[in-house]
């Protein structure tokens, strides 16, 4: 895309993109740390996740404000307009990803001192790996404005949903069998639920990238054959 005749307009749009990239980076790290804190019962790391959430909230406000200013003063059209709409929507989703990471971190703090389960949270680890991959891919697609990569994220979401369902079923069955350990098993369910939601947000971000690049709104469409 060539440059605007107005250099300050280019700068303003670049600032929005930079803030969004920073937000994505902070949130991605939050999710990684929260997952690690959860499986390792690491209260200190969990505390860092919670501190980072303040920066995420601040970035959400900054991005919204910058976008509103540009809309009011520049009357953006075409790609510029779609960039701003996508940035505002993506920042909302990223902020919610931050909230889910915060939730996982809170549970990690609660688990500190307890013995990890025998399977060392094998299912949660697998689910978190898949979800973090999805989130990274969506942020990558956003940074490179890659609609093809963004569209592929939708496929990954089905696997994450299935992973969550499997954890839920397994933990419910285990609760019935060993009712003494319900608190820890509930934590696993809540963490898996948060991860599944993070996957949904990553999918949303992928959809905004498709809109940004191709101008097509692909939300609420079923996968082909799905």
């Amino acid at each position: 895309m060539s440059e605007h005749i107005s250099e300050s307009y280019d700068l303003e749009l670049r600032n929005v993109r930079n803030a969004l990239m920073e937000m994505g980076g902070v949130v991605e790290q939050q999710v990684r740390s929260a997952c690690h804190a959860f499986v390792a019962h690491d209260a200190e790391l969990a505390g860092l996740v919670r501190v980072a959430d303040q920066r995420v909230n601040q970035l959400e406000l900054e991005i919204d404000d910058q976008c509103v200013q540009i809309i009011a003063r520049r009357q953006p059209a075409a790609t510029d307009l779609r960039t701003l709409v996508a940035a505002m929507k993506a920042s909302t989703d990223l902020e919610r990803v931050g909230d889910e990471a915060d939730r996982i971190a809170k549970m990690a703090s609660g688990l500190a001192g307890a013995e990890p389960p025998l399977d060392q949270y094998g299912d949660v680890r697998r689910l978190s790996t898949d979800v973090i991959k999805m989130l990274s891919a969506s942020l990558d697609a956003l940074a490179r404005q890659d609609a093809e990569q963004a569209a592929a994220i939708k496929q990954a979401d089905s696997a994450v949903d299935a992973g969550y369902d499997a954890i839920l079923r397994e933990q419910l069955a285990a609760m019935q069998e060993h009712p003494h350990n319900i608190e820890q098993r509930l934590s696993i369910i809540w963490a898996a639920r948060s991860l599944e939601r993070i996957g949904d947000h990553a999918k949303n971000i992928g959809e905004y990238v498709v809109y940004l690049v191709e101008g097509e709104d692909v939300r609420h469409q079923k996968l082909r054959g799905g």
Partner: peptide, 19 residues
């Protein structure tokens, strides 16, 4: 035309870019 123009020339014009 104003949200998703097909032609690069249109895009450059309505977004105020150097064509």
């Amino acid at each position: 035309v104003f949200t998703n123009p097909k032609e690069r020339q249109t895009e450059d014009y309505i977004t105020g870019r150097r064509g």
